[in-house]
């Protein structure tokens, strides 16, 4: 049995791994099979991570975080967790490839997933003019007319990035003010290819086999009108990825994992949570990294306070695991 398994490979997971590895806990980090590095892997330039005055590309930052975690002995597995057993002193993590790993402590840092529009046409048109990844798909909209839905930093970044390719980028936002940081807003306002459509939401996606436009609904008057488009990029926020711990860990009314005060402690001893999965408000790379630090330190204290192997042997499952490790 290991001391600690970290689930998630974003800024929270890798920062937790740096701290846990430096505490000589030899962490195992489950990075996922196809979303290694988390959300920053699909961003362009990160300008607000402290220590990089010139900015750094999201994927480069994640590569560096991983290298730093591995330098101190973190072991990284590229697979997905399919099942978790969190009760009791031995936590079990089952992977898609059939492997089972055991640890005394878990740090759960699975981040969040893109929020969908919730429209019935969404499934069919996904990948056919409807996209969640501007850096992946912007290339296919050269000289086209497209729209970004959303009003946060991600939406501004995507809209600005997409003007490299598209002739025209609408930003569709349901309010008349933006949540995005002032610098990102100004960049979008100054871009002559970007036009804002305020107080509007997407009521329907148009097109049988590919997006041909959207029906917009005015959020004030309720009036509807059609807007012809070649593509639509969705950046309306994220939802915490908690499906693996439903019914196991307590959640907040906002859907994030509930933790005790400013700590990372969940309702189960030995299970800690960090990053966007516990954070409905801030959700920055640097706050996630800070949260990963908290979780690693909490886990370290928890492990230090556990009874040593011989005492623990009275608990059947722990005893078996530890004797196996000794043999």
């Amino acid at each position: 049995m290991r001391d600690i398994i970290i689930i998630g490979s974003g800024p929270a997971g890798f920062t937790a791994a740096i701290y846990a590895a430096r505490a000589q806990l030899k962490p195992l980090l489950i990075a996922s099979s196809v979303e290694i590095g988390g959300e920053l892997m699909n961003t362009t330039e990160v300008e607000n991570f402290p220590g990089f005055p010139e900015g750094i590309m999201g994927p480069d930052l994640m590569t560096k975080l991983q290298e730093q975690a591995e330098r101190f002995g973190t072991e990284v597995v590229y697979d997905d967790v399919v099942e978790l057993e969190l009760d009791g002193p031995v936590k079990r993590v089952n992977l898609g490839n059939g492997e089972e790993h055991e640890a005394a402590a878990i740090i759960y840092a699975t981040g969040s997933a893109y929020r969908k529009l919730g429209l019935p046409e969404e499934e069919v048109l996904s990948g056919h003019g409807l996209s969640w990844c501007a850096t992946c798909d912007g290339f296919f909209f050269r000289q086209k007319t497209i729209a970004v839905v959303g009003g946060g930093d991600s939406a501004m970044e995507e809209a600005t990035f997409l003007t490299r390719f598209a002739d025209k980028v609408y930003v569709i936002h349901r309010r008349d003010t933006l949540k995005a940081s002032k610098i990102m807003q100004q960049r979008a306002f100054d871009n002559e290819k970007i036009e804002f459509i305020w107080n509007a939401e997407v009521a329907r996606l148009l097109g049988e086999t590919a997006v041909t436009g959207v029906t917009l609904r005015d959020t004030v008057t309720g009036d509807e009108r059609d807007l012809p488009l070649d593509g639509l990029f969705v950046a309306i926020g994220n939802d915490p990825r908690t499906h693996l711990v439903h019914g196991k860990l307590d959640l907040t009314s906002e859907g994030t994992i509930a933790v005790d005060g400013r700590t990372s402690k969940t309702n189960i001893p030995g299970v800690f949570a960090a990053g966007d999965v516990i954070d409905p408000h801030y959700r920055q790379a640097v706050t996630a990294a800070g949260s990963g630090t908290v979780a690693a330190l909490d886990a370290e204290h928890y492990l230090a306070a556990l009874p040593k192997a011989p005492e623990a042997a009275s608990e059947t499952s722990v005893g078996e695991a530890e004797f196996a490790a000794v043999n």
Partner: peptide, 28 residues
């Protein structure tokens, strides 16, 4: 082949597209 999102996987049989899968997914 009207690609507007990648990764896109298209299965061809006898020169025709018989299946399209879009997006990175876990192996299973």
């Amino acid at each position: 082949y009207q690609i507007t999102a990648i990764p896109a996987f298209k299965v061809f049989e006898k020169g025709e597209v018989v299946k399209t899968v879009i997006g990175a997914k876990p192996k299973p």
